[in-house]
Amino acid sequence: MTLTREDAVDILTRQHAQIRRGFYKAAVPGPTRRRAFERLMRLLAVHEAAEEAHVHPVARRALQAGRDLAARRREEEKQAKKLLIALWRTGPEGKGYLRQLNTVRKAVLEHAAREEREEFAALRRAVGAKRLRILGAEVKLTQAYAPTRPHRWVNNEAANKLAAPLLGPVDRLRDLARHTTRR
Protein backbone atom coordinates (compact mmCIF):
# COMPACT_ATOMS: atom_id res chain seq x y z
CA MET A 1 0.00 0.00 0.00
CA THR A 2 1.40 3.40 -0.97
CA LEU A 3 0.76 6.19 1.49
CA THR A 4 0.69 9.86 0.67
CA ARG A 5 3.99 11.67 1.18
CA GLU A 6 2.19 14.37 3.09
CA ASP A 7 1.54 13.74 6.72
CA ALA A 8 -1.33 15.09 8.79
CA VAL A 9 0.71 17.99 10.16
CA ASP A 10 1.71 19.07 6.64
CA ILE A 11 -1.88 18.90 5.39
CA LEU A 12 -3.42 20.75 8.32
CA THR A 13 -0.70 23.41 8.48
CA ARG A 14 -1.16 24.10 4.77
CA GLN A 15 -4.90 24.37 5.35
CA HIS A 16 -4.30 26.85 8.17
CA ALA A 17 -2.57 29.10 5.62
CA GLN A 18 -5.49 28.63 3.22
CA ILE A 19 -7.90 29.53 6.02
CA ARG A 20 -5.93 32.73 6.80
CA ARG A 21 -6.15 33.79 3.16
CA GLY A 22 -9.81 32.72 3.02
CA PHE A 23 -10.78 35.12 5.79
CA TYR A 24 -9.34 38.04 3.86
CA LYS A 25 -11.00 36.97 0.60
CA ALA A 26 -14.36 36.61 2.39
CA ALA A 27 -14.05 40.22 3.60
CA VAL A 28 -13.53 41.75 0.15
CA PRO A 29 -16.71 43.47 -1.04
CA GLY A 30 -18.14 42.69 -4.42
CA PRO A 31 -19.49 39.83 -6.47
CA THR A 32 -16.87 37.29 -5.30
CA ARG A 33 -17.60 37.69 -1.59
CA ARG A 34 -20.36 35.04 -1.42
CA ARG A 35 -18.23 32.43 -3.16
CA ALA A 36 -15.20 33.23 -0.98
CA PHE A 37 -17.40 32.98 2.14
CA GLU A 38 -18.77 29.59 1.11
CA ARG A 39 -15.29 28.25 0.30
CA LEU A 40 -14.01 29.42 3.67
CA MET A 41 -16.92 27.87 5.56
CA ARG A 42 -16.48 24.59 3.70
CA LEU A 43 -12.73 24.51 4.38
CA LEU A 44 -13.27 25.27 8.07
CA ALA A 45 -15.94 22.58 8.40
CA VAL A 46 -13.97 19.75 6.76
CA HIS A 47 -10.74 20.83 8.45
CA GLU A 48 -12.25 20.74 11.93
CA ALA A 49 -14.07 17.48 11.24
CA ALA A 50 -10.77 15.75 10.46
CA GLU A 51 -8.99 17.25 13.46
CA GLU A 52 -11.80 16.30 15.83
CA ALA A 53 -12.19 12.78 14.43
CA HIS A 54 -8.53 11.83 14.09
CA VAL A 55 -5.83 14.29 15.12
CA HIS A 56 -6.97 15.26 18.62
CA PRO A 57 -7.64 11.61 19.58
CA VAL A 58 -4.09 10.65 18.48
CA ALA A 59 -2.69 13.60 20.45
CA ARG A 60 -4.76 12.61 23.48
CA ARG A 61 -3.30 9.09 23.43
CA ALA A 62 0.26 9.75 22.22
CA LEU A 63 1.33 12.90 24.05
CA GLN A 64 2.37 13.11 27.68
CA ALA A 65 -0.08 15.94 28.41
CA GLY A 66 -2.27 14.90 25.50
CA ARG A 67 -5.49 14.57 27.43
CA ASP A 68 -5.39 18.19 28.64
CA LEU A 69 -4.06 19.49 25.32
CA ALA A 70 -6.77 17.79 23.27
CA ALA A 71 -9.45 18.95 25.72
CA ARG A 72 -8.30 22.58 25.35
CA ARG A 73 -8.30 22.35 21.54
CA ARG A 74 -11.78 20.76 21.53
CA GLU A 75 -13.13 23.50 23.81
CA GLU A 76 -11.67 26.18 21.51
CA GLU A 77 -13.25 24.45 18.52
CA LYS A 78 -16.59 24.22 20.30
CA GLN A 79 -16.54 27.98 20.97
CA ALA A 80 -15.40 28.74 17.42
CA LYS A 81 -18.17 26.53 16.05
CA LYS A 82 -20.78 28.64 17.86
CA LEU A 83 -19.30 31.74 16.21
CA LEU A 84 -19.20 29.99 12.83
CA ILE A 85 -22.85 28.98 13.06
CA ALA A 86 -23.82 32.57 13.85
CA LEU A 87 -21.70 33.79 10.93
CA TRP A 88 -23.25 31.16 8.63
CA ARG A 89 -26.72 32.37 9.59
CA THR A 90 -25.78 36.02 9.00
CA GLY A 91 -24.14 35.30 5.65
CA PRO A 92 -21.99 37.70 3.64
CA GLU A 93 -24.90 40.03 2.88
CA GLY A 94 -26.15 40.20 6.48
CA LYS A 95 -25.98 43.02 8.96
CA GLY A 96 -22.80 42.91 11.03
CA TYR A 97 -21.12 40.41 8.70
CA LEU A 98 -17.66 42.00 8.72
CA ARG A 99 -17.67 42.39 12.51
CA GLN A 100 -18.68 38.74 12.94
CA LEU A 101 -16.18 37.60 10.32
CA ASN A 102 -13.40 39.41 12.17
CA THR A 103 -14.43 37.88 15.51
CA VAL A 104 -14.41 34.40 13.97
CA ARG A 105 -11.10 35.10 12.19
CA LYS A 106 -9.42 36.08 15.44
CA ALA A 107 -10.70 33.03 17.34
CA VAL A 108 -9.87 30.58 14.55
CA LEU A 109 -6.39 31.92 13.84
CA GLU A 110 -5.45 32.00 17.54
CA HIS A 111 -6.66 28.40 17.80
CA ALA A 112 -4.67 27.39 14.70
CA ALA A 113 -1.51 29.02 16.07
CA ARG A 114 -1.88 27.09 19.35
CA GLU A 115 -2.43 23.85 17.42
CA GLU A 116 0.71 24.38 15.38
CA ARG A 117 2.82 25.47 18.34
CA GLU A 118 1.59 22.97 20.95
CA GLU A 119 -0.15 20.00 19.36
CA PHE A 120 1.43 19.62 15.91
CA ALA A 121 4.99 20.18 17.13
CA ALA A 122 4.49 17.61 19.91
CA LEU A 123 2.96 15.11 17.48
CA ARG A 124 6.01 15.41 15.20
CA ARG A 125 8.25 14.54 18.18
CA ALA A 126 6.09 11.76 19.65
CA VAL A 127 4.58 9.98 16.65
CA GLY A 128 6.55 8.26 13.92
CA ALA A 129 6.62 9.52 10.34
CA LYS A 130 4.72 6.50 9.04
CA ARG A 131 1.91 6.99 11.58
CA LEU A 132 1.70 10.69 10.69
CA ARG A 133 1.37 9.76 6.99
CA ILE A 134 -1.39 7.26 7.85
CA LEU A 135 -3.04 9.99 9.90
CA GLY A 136 -2.70 12.26 6.84
CA ALA A 137 -4.55 9.69 4.73
CA GLU A 138 -7.29 9.50 7.41
CA VAL A 139 -7.55 13.31 7.38
CA LYS A 140 -7.93 13.38 3.59
CA LEU A 141 -10.52 10.60 3.62
CA THR A 142 -12.56 12.29 6.34
CA GLN A 143 -12.43 15.62 4.53
CA ALA A 144 -13.71 13.97 1.35
CA TYR A 145 -17.06 13.12 2.97
CA ALA A 146 -17.29 15.47 5.98
CA PRO A 147 -20.08 18.02 6.40
CA THR A 148 -19.41 21.26 4.54
CA ARG A 149 -20.90 23.59 7.14
CA PRO A 150 -20.71 23.80 10.93
CA HIS A 151 -23.13 21.74 12.99
CA ARG A 152 -23.19 22.69 16.67
CA TRP A 153 -23.56 19.19 18.11
CA VAL A 154 -20.85 17.65 15.91
CA ASN A 155 -17.79 18.56 17.96
CA ASN A 156 -15.94 15.46 19.10
CA GLU A 157 -14.46 12.24 17.77
CA ALA A 158 -17.57 10.08 18.07
CA ALA A 159 -19.99 12.71 16.77
CA ASN A 160 -17.78 13.40 13.74
CA LYS A 161 -17.34 9.74 12.89
CA LEU A 162 -21.07 9.06 13.23
CA ALA A 163 -22.38 12.24 11.62
CA ALA A 164 -20.02 12.62 8.68
CA PRO A 165 -21.49 9.81 6.55
CA LEU A 166 -24.98 11.26 7.14
CA LEU A 167 -24.49 15.04 7.23
CA GLY A 168 -21.70 15.17 4.66
CA PRO A 169 -23.86 14.00 1.73
CA VAL A 170 -26.81 16.13 2.90
CA ASP A 171 -24.61 19.26 3.06
CA ARG A 172 -23.09 18.48 -0.33
CA LEU A 173 -26.55 18.10 -1.90
CA ARG A 174 -27.58 21.44 -0.37
CA ASP A 175 -24.39 23.00 -1.75
CA LEU A 176 -25.11 21.60 -5.19
CA ALA A 177 -28.73 22.80 -5.12
CA ARG A 178 -27.67 26.27 -3.99
CA HIS A 179 -24.97 26.43 -6.66
CA THR A 180 -27.28 25.35 -9.49
CA THR A 181 -30.02 27.84 -8.51
CA ARG A 182 -27.53 30.71 -8.70
CA ARG A 183 -26.56 30.01 -12.29
Score class of each variant (00 low, 15 high):
A8V: 08
V104R: 00
R33N: 11
I11W: 00
Q18Y: 12
N102S: 14
V170A: 09
A53N: 09
A159H: 01
A8K: 04
E38K: 04
H111I: 11
E116Q: 12
L3C: 04
G22Y: 03
L173H: 03
K106N: 08
V28Q: 14
A45Y: 06
L40D: 08
K82R: 15
E115V: 06
R172N: 03
L101Q: 03
T142L: 11
R73T: 15
Y24W: 15
R39I: 05
K140Q: 15
H151S: 03
I19M: 11
P165E: 08
D175L: 04
R61S: 15
R34S: 13
N160L: 05
R33K: 14
R33G: 09
R125Q: 15
L173P: 02
Y24K: 13
E118K: 02
L135V: 07
R21V: 05
R133K: 14
R42A: 10
L98Y: 13
L109N: 01
H151W: 13
G96A: 03
K106R: 08
R117E: 11
A36K: 04
L166W: 13
R34P: 02
H16P: 14
P169K: 06
R152Y: 14
E77C: 03
T90C: 09
A50M: 04
E38D: 12
F120H: 09
H56L: 13
R67N: 09
E116M: 02
T32Y: 01
Q15T: 11
A17W: 14
G91I: 11
E116G: 14
A121N: 11
A177K: 05
A53S: 10
W153N: 09
T180M: 07
V28K: 09
V104N: 04
A137F: 02
R178V: 06
V108K: 02
R182T: 15
E38H: 10
V127S: 08
P31W: 05
E118F: 01
L3G: 03
A107D: 10
P31N: 07
L123I: 06
H16L: 09
R33L: 09
A159P: 12
L109E: 08
T13H: 04
E77D: 12
W153G: 07
P169E: 14
D7Y: 01
L84N: 02
A137E: 12
V127H: 03
L84Q: 13
H47G: 02
E115D: 05
H54K: 05
A146R: 11
A70L: 07
A53I: 13
R89F: 15
F120A: 05
L83M: 13
E110R: 02
A144C: 10
M1C: 07
K95P: 03
G30Y: 04
R60T: 05
T4I: 14
A86P: 00
L141C: 06
R124D: 08
